[in-house]
Amino acid sequence: MLLIDQILGDFFWRALIGGLGVALVAGPLGCFVVWRRMAYFGDTLAHSALLGVAFGFLLQLPLNLTIAATCIVIALALVVLSRNQSLATDTLLGILAHSSLAVGLVALSFMPDVRVDLNAYLFGDLLAMRQSDLIWIYGGAAIVLAMLFGLWRGLLMSTIHEELAKVEGIPVERLRLVLMLMFSLVIAVAMKIVGVLLITALLIIPAATARRLARSPEQMVAWAMVIGMIAVTGGLSASWHFNSPAGPSIVVAAFALFTLVYSLLRPQRS
């Protein structure tokens, strides 16, 4: 017990444990982002997280909660708006991404009693991780991983071919909503680590790197988890040694791994 207390009492270890927890869920979800070409979608949700922060201060509610709720609302709005296709989806995503970011920034500036460190929200504030954040991260990770495990076949099949999945009786629409719910949860907890501007990187870079190493969807998920965890460990160590910002250092580490794997390994025959 003493050792655990000591570890959790140290801000570096708290940051590392939290970061590893996020890498664990970002791996599988990142694979879905890559498979379903949702990178821009993830970006939009992440940007809207800042609006969630503003709501949290305004309503005096836990930030994790308001961030997740805002992401869910934006995700649902996207589903509804993209059905009514008078604008291309990427235009719509661009509008929502930057508008929600801008509205969030403006709203925060109107709250004079709230002293907000914007940098922490935009680029992450991993080293200020508290024990309660760790509970959020591992609680959220457990829920998301359990859902992914239970719904795996349906999620994978509807990713490969929606109509085939529908004909085979898989509830494609419902699964899409579940996936968005999971994204919202993960963004809410991952924001602490890398901030709204870099969350998408934490999702897609490990998954894209894993593609070179994997021969099956499950292998790709496993590799994405491992690579994400290496990136978190490497990035945090670098930030410790070179006094660089933690969030960006993690993304740089992930990118270094990506470059290394893609330049050393030839494409898999799968």
Binding site: W35, R36, I160, A208, R215, S216, P217, S270
Partner: peptide, 8 residues
């Protein structure tokens, strides 16, 4: 097919 999804 998403070539990003390895599948046999």
């Amino acid at each position: 097919l998403q070539s990003a999804l390895p599948l046999s």
